[in-house]
Measured scan of single mutants.
Amino acid sequence: EDYYQILGVPRNASQKEIKKAYYQLAKKYHPDTNKDDPKAKEKFSQLAEAYEVLSDEVKRKQYDA
């Protein structure tokens, strides 16, 4: 799945936009606030993985290549 789609940001998003999108979605899908939703944990880990790659310039360049 596309990391940009997961975070809901365009491919040319700035680091600030990526961070903002991640924090909004992380708050929304955090397992502690969605105890009754088994998919929230999965969504949250996808968000974390996408953010880890896109927030790191080197990893992001490799991902975009």
Rank of each mutant, 00 (worst) to 15 (best):
Q5Y: 11
Q15V: 13
K59Y: 05
K43V: 10
P38F: 06
P10G: 09
D2K: 04
L54A: 01
K35H: 15
E17R: 15
K28C: 08
H30W: 07
R11Q: 09
A13S: 09
K41M: 15
Q62N: 11
D37A: 03
L25Q: 09
E1Y: 14
Y22W: 08
A50I: 08
K35D: 11
Q24T: 15
A65K: 15
E49R: 12
S14A: 12
A40W: 11
P10H: 15
D36P: 04
E57C: 07
K20C: 08
Q62K: 10
K41T: 14
S55G: 14
K28H: 12
K43F: 10
S14G: 07
K43L: 12
L25A: 12
S45W: 15
A50H: 00
Y23R: 14
E52R: 06
D64F: 02
A48M: 15
A26N: 07
A21E: 03
D64S: 02
A65L: 11
Y4E: 00
D37C: 05
T33P: 06
N12Y: 10
H30M: 08
P38M: 10
L54M: 03
P10V: 08
Q15T: 14
Y63D: 02
V53L: 05
P10S: 10
G8V: 03
Q15E: 14
D36K: 05
K27E: 15
S45F: 12
K27D: 12
L7G: 00
T33R: 08
K39R: 11
L54E: 00
A50V: 10
V58E: 15
V58L: 13
K19R: 11
K16E: 15
A21V: 05
Y23G: 12
E57M: 07
D36M: 06
A50K: 01
Q5T: 14
K35Q: 15
K35L: 12
E1P: 15
D2L: 05
D2I: 04
V53I: 10
D56M: 02
Y51S: 01
Y23L: 14
G8N: 09
D64Q: 03
K39T: 15
K35M: 09
Q15A: 13
L25E: 10
N34W: 15
K20V: 14
E42T: 04
K43A: 08
K28T: 07
Y22S: 01
I18K: 00
Y3F: 11
V58Y: 11
A26Y: 15
A48Q: 14
F44S: 04
Y23V: 15
A50Y: 02
R11A: 07
